[in-house]
């Protein structure tokens, strides 16, 4: 069974260890602003919500890319940006309805979660198990997928 990142906002304290771990994994330094996972702070509600790519089946980013820079990692199910191929056109950033592909002006390329080749740094760094890497049909993920279908221009729902 393929694994996926499962996020339980109830457990998140907003410490941002995941953001640092992510940026360290991909850029070698601690830089939350470049993290592919982002923790949102709902101050009034007293809630922290970590958020990143669900590696959805629809893969709008992958299909929108004009140069095949985003490919599927068959072992993890991750949609991966190949930085050498990416021309930086940003079409994927507007195509992804989850807003999880972001342009990095320093590199001139986009970045998204690649599941760290099956060993996600964010999940390892999370001190409260708010982020875990578990079998794909665990809670939370399903709801996001439902929503994904709702956004779809018509390719998968009912297909």
């Amino acid at each position: 069974m393929q694994k996926s990142l499962t996020i339980d906002p109830e457990k998140c304290t907003g410490c941002l260890q995941c953001e640092m771990a992510c940026s360290y994994q991909s850029d070698g330094l601690f830089n939350p602003s470049k993290s592919r996972i982002k923790v949102f702070n709902f101050h009034e509600e007293g809630r922290f919500v970590p958020y990143t790519c669900t590696q959805c089946d629809e893969a709008w980013c992958l299909h929108a890319c004009p140069v095949d820079a985003i490919t599927l990692d068959a072992s993890t199910g991750a949609k991966i940006v190949n930085a050498d191929t990416c021309v930086g056109c940003k079409v994927c950033t507007i195509a992804c309805p989850f807003g999880t592909v972001n342009y990095n002006s320093d590199t001139g390329k986009v970045a998204k979660c690649d599941l760290c080749a099956g060993d996600p740094a964010c999940a390892k760094a999370c001190p409260t198990d708010a982020i875990t890497y578990v079998d794909a049909d665990a809670t939370g993920y399903e709801r996001m997928k439902e929503w994904a279908a709702k956004t779809d221009a018509g390719m998968t729902a009912g297909a």
């Binding site: 304290t13 907003g14 410490c15 509600e45 007293g46 409260t128």
Partner: peptide, 13 residues
């Protein structure tokens, strides 16, 4: 109390 919160990088919270 709604929940506990952490400062930057804090694993105690």
């Amino acid at each position: 109390l709604t929940r506990n919160g952490g400062c930057f990088g804090c694993t105690i919270a």
